[in-house]
Design a protein around this nucleic acid. Structure first.
Lengths: 302, 302
DNA sequence: TGTCTCGATGATAAAAATGCATGGAGCAAG
DNA sequence: CTTGCTCCATGCATTTTTATCATCGAGACA
């Protein structure tokens, strides 16, 4: 007996292979594994280098298991499952740790919450507590481990890491484009109801500001409806009540699912960012580091 | 289902754990895996961090599996064996590759050959061809992939990497020390037969040179026996026929096994090294890289 | 014919594994 | 009860491995 190092492909590649084989799709496997597609591609390549044959038949836009690949896949599933089952039975979960995450209401409801299921699933041992508030919170006083703030990053007494660069552009429901008045270029906005953020909102860009920045003047505005809550504003847009200003990271998912569309390509790129904000004395905290890694990756995928 | 990344310990640690569990000894496991004991120790630590319990009971100079560790070990063996068996059946061995290694006769017989079994075992797919010659060979003409040469490293047209720093000191058989004339300090050498290298040998240090360097003069020499082959010379020393000059990397193994001993601590450190010598156009060659990695590690362990 | 999606790949950056050197703990033998 | 072994742990530096980023090309779809 001489150890499995020489009898088995690189162990990491086996894990990647299992996921890739299950989905027969590297991209999906990558998503599950929380890595990029490129990483999976290379891992599979490593595996195949070791094996000396192709485990996947690439080609027509997909990756299908070859017959050998399939045999291997089945063995891997059985083997890993055997180990994983035992591990599961034996493993002593580390004490649940609590992690407090603060963000604005709109960011939480439109960006964070929709993605958080993935995090809970990946890291069931980390209990999250959310604080959503548009006021600027005191990290220490509220025992906040991580905050997400929009602004210029110049906050004293905290550590600051850029997370997302926003972009602001008109969005509306697909039905409005189809059935409502013409809406293809900036001047067409005059014929529409504009859903606007109540200026009382802390930050946020009003249509007036946006039009001034993008076209130079505001032009004629037929009707404005005001919301003091971006979440409600977007909901109104989804229902076809008018045209809203969509914030890129926040509405991306809705655009992707075609619940909202961008009738006009004009866009505005504010100087400010969404930042991750950490208490300055950020001591070693595994849960927090896990969360940070996760959220930065989630942000990279928009 | 969410992928084994979260259900299994770091995959590499599983491989290390299997070896460590099998030997119940990190040091031996490390040897098998071709890594240091430290590496194994850390891998086990990783595993245990994930598990949340100790897989080994350390303590009295050994590492014994805990009951949980044992359960896990059994599961791991079954799981890995299942995968490895299938891999074994499916794997297409890469075409055997031939690797030509040149060295001096003495280096080959005293250092390389004794260690090469390990290499063959680790990398059965690499076929080695040896060229042993004390003449300086032409790497290209003889299709040599790797040569080991002793000297100052100033060879034109080749790549040169230091491998071993030699040291030269008297050695003899243990019985000679016990039963022969007193042999504890330099002057005692006068009473002994000195086994010497025929000066015709390309390099090599004669007793005369050695004594001059170490003591200033040669003193009285009772009897010299000459060999034109270092291997034979060492063999004579082992049989108790006299005192030889041992070259540190070459006789280390014999010293370790107490087939030879060092009656006198005086030592001489020549300026020259054993070097690995590669053809300058060293194109990508996996077998060669594997061999280089192996030999450098072997050299690190003397 | 554009527009998508999917996988591959070269250049780098980030992360993990390893080596090295060293320390402490037990154990065995003088 | 000291000395010398062997064995595991660990801080620090380095090497090796992995992953990312940014692109590309190929096929699918409309």
């Amino acid at each position: 007996m001489s150890g499995y190092r020489s009898k088995l492909p690189p162990p990491n590649s086996i894990i990647a292979f299992e996921a890739a084989g299950r989905f027969q799709n590297f991209t999906q496997a990558a998503r599950e594994l929380n890595v990029t597609q490129a990483a999976v591609s290379r891992q599979i390549r490593n595996l195949e280098d070791f094996l000396g044959f192709s485990a996947f038949e690439r080609g027509n836009g997909r990756a299908q298991l070859t017959p050998e690949g399939k045999r291997l896949f089945e063995a891997v599933v059985i083997g890993l499952e055997h180990i994983a089952g035992t591990v599961h039975g034996l493993r002593r979960r580390p004490k649940k740790t609590y992690l407090t995450v603060a963000s604005t209401i709109s960011f939480a409801s439109l960006w964070l919450i929709p993605r958080i299921a993935n995090f809970r699933h990946e890291f069931p041992d980390i209990d999250l507590r959310f604080i959503s508030s548009d006021a600027e919170l005191d990290l220490d006083a509220d025992a906040i481990d991580v905050a997400i703030r929009y602004g210029n990053g110049a906050w004293p007494g905290v550590l600051v890491v850029p997370l997302l660069k926003p972009e602001i552009f008109p969005v509306c429901s697909p039905s409005l484009v189809k059935d409502g008045p013409r809406l293809q270029a900036l001047p067409d906005l005059s014929a529409h109801t504009l859903l606007d953020r109540d200026e009382a909102g802390t930050f946020g860009v009003s249509w007036k500001t946006w039009l001034t920045r993008v076209r130079g003047d505001t032009g004629h505005i037929r009707r404005r409806v005001l919301f003091n809550n971006y979440d409600l504003l977007i909901r109104a847009a989804i229902e076809g009540q008018g045209v809203a200003l969509g914030w890129s990271p926040l509405v991306n998912e809705l655009l992707k699912q075609k619940i909202l569309v961008r009738p006009i390509v004009s866009t505005m790129k504010p100087k400010d960012f969404y930042y991750l904000v950490l208490p300055k004395d950020a001591s070693m905290n595994k849960s927090r580091d896990t969360f940070l890694k996760w959220i930065r990756r989630a942000a990279a995928l928009h």
